[in-house]
Design a protein around this nucleic acid. Structure first.
Length: 420
RNA sequence: GCCCCCAUCGACUAGCGGUCCAGGUCGCGGCCCUUUCAAGGCCGUAGCGCGGGUUCGAAUCCCGCUGGGGGCACCA
């Protein structure tokens, strides 16, 4: 039987990174097995913002490169089917009315069990399972009724979801059996927690896919990082692109214990991907990111600055702070210029007539100037760097001066010299 | 309270009875390189929660404890 899985977000407004991790496991499994993956919006309750939230979910998934098969379906569209089924269960004596609602009669003896792909056999005593509300008194089916029924109707073979659904599973299995459906295989992935071991939330840092995008993480980084949260192909491999992830993913290797989201490691990984990009591709991503985040900067200049920063930043959002001196005025801190007057004057003299004005010659000229003053490069270049870039931390000084151009470089040096 | 799940370095993990006085990656520390910051190279730091079993042999299997987490809605 061909594999068919589903991603079932509820339209709450943004896509939580923990949910994405679960969706990714579904996607990797489906693609690895050559099966199908459906996108189903579980909107039984929040009919209000559905359109917007759904678009948001779609956009986020597309950005990550997580695709799906067939049309997007909505739980809301099957409410009538659910109601009809519930009525049938009542007629069969399997469910009963209770203050306007319909409840399913759960078995009182024995156990309900399943072989979870990531946890092994799970058994729950039936006496601990309460009679479940199928349809509320206002006529809306509950999640625990609609979701398993849709799994049956859609022919879902594997339900891969978060471990918070473990306790729902025995209920859903009983319902599926009651309607004579095929019980899918279940796989409950571990939770994703913050550094304190608690559920990942805003206070830990970014949690929405959009936030990671805004911070300048690449989709391939997120995909790689998320896949490794609860799964590993072996003990050695860390950096894996999409194709390799698909090729190597094994559901049964998913770890049952919860994982903590490590932002520092994410930064490192993103740096790896950033550095591996061909420089023109890196430039392209910078231009796109800047454009999407309100920076109206010259694309040509961004492209020329790209190689200077590619090795130095780990998120696209760091670019403005790092290379902003190329696109606007700078205000060097006087304290950081202190003692640099001589070198600044020497730099001005060295650069004033330099021709052609390129990094190589600029370096030669500035080194000669430093030598002339008996200064070590480390001491000599720092005031120049501060004067020109406005910061003690910058891309390579000589390349920066070249990009800035003689006019701007000289005027900044003169302004600084006057204050040093 | 009841039910369920989980338990290897600070973090992500490898390990599925001997090849492990536990390996990789991030982080952290040191050194090298160096015009700053990075990147890179080298070295280092740090772990099988506890107690019982089973076995010739246990990080690996079983039981208990402890500690985390999740769930017990006419939310999803």
């Amino acid at each position: 039987m061909p594999v068919r899985v589903r991603m079932a977000p509820s339209p709450t407004g943004f896509l939580h990174i923990g949910n994405v991790r679960t969706f990714l496991f579904n996607w990797l499994y489906a693609r690895h097995e050559g099966g199908e993956i459906r996108l189903r919006i579980e909107n039984t309750d929040t009919a209000r913002e559905v359109a917007e939230a759904t678009d948001f979910i779609r956009d986020s998934l597309r950005w990550l490169g997580i695709d799906w098969d067939g049309p997007v379906t909505f739980q809301l569209d099957r409410m009538d089917d659910c109601r009809r089924l519930a009525a049938q269960l009542v007629a069969e004596g399997k469910a009963y009315e209770d203050e306007g609602a319909i409840r399913y009669r759960m078995p009182d003896e024995g156990v309900t069990a399943w072989d979870d792909v990531v946890r092994g056999r799970v058994e729950v005593p039936n006496e601990t399972i309460e009679d479940l509300v199928l349809v509320r008194s206002d006529g809306r089916p509950t999640y625990n009724f609609a979701s398993p029924m849709e799994d049956v109707w859609d022919g879902i073979t594997h339900v891969i979801r978060g471990e918070d659904h473990i306790s729902n599973t025995p209920k859903q299995i009983n319902l599926i059996r009651a309607v004579g459906g095929d019980v899918p295989t279940y796989a409950h992935a571990p939770n994703v927690n913050g550094a304190d071991g608690k559920k990942l939330s805003k206070r830990h840092g970014a949690v929405g896919v959009d936030e990671f995008r805004d911070a300048g993480y690449l989709p391939e980084t997120l995909l790689n990082f998320l896949a490794l949260l609860g799964w590993a192909p072996d003990g050695e491999t860390t950096v894996m692109r999409r194709d390799e992830l698909v090729a190597r993913f094994e559901l049964a290797r998913v770890n049952p214990s919860p994982a903590q989201f490590d932002y520092a490691k994410l930064d490192w990984l993103n740096g790896v991907y950033l550095r591996e990009l061909p420089v023109d591709e890196f430039a392209h991503r910078l231009v796109l990111w800047l454009g999407e985040h309100g920076y109206d900067w010259d694309a040509q200049l961004v492209a020329r600055a790209a190689p200077l920063v590619q090795e130095k930043i780990s998120r696209l959002a760091e670019f403005p702070a790092f290379a902003g001196f190329l696109f606007g005025e700078v205000e060097p801190d006087a304290a950081e210029l202190a003692g640099g007057a001589e070198m600044l004057a020497a730099a001005i003299a060295a650069l004033a007539e330099l021709e052609p004005f390129d990094a190589e010659r600029i370096e030669t000229a500035l080194r000669a100037a430093a030598d002339g003053l008996g200064l070590k490069p480390r001491q000599a270049f720092q005031p120049v760097r501060v004067a020109v870039t406005g910061s003690r931390v910058s891309p390579g000084l000589f390349e920066s001066v070249e990009l800035l151009g003689r006019e701007t470089a000289l005027s900044r040096l003169r302004a600084a010299a006057a204050r040093a």
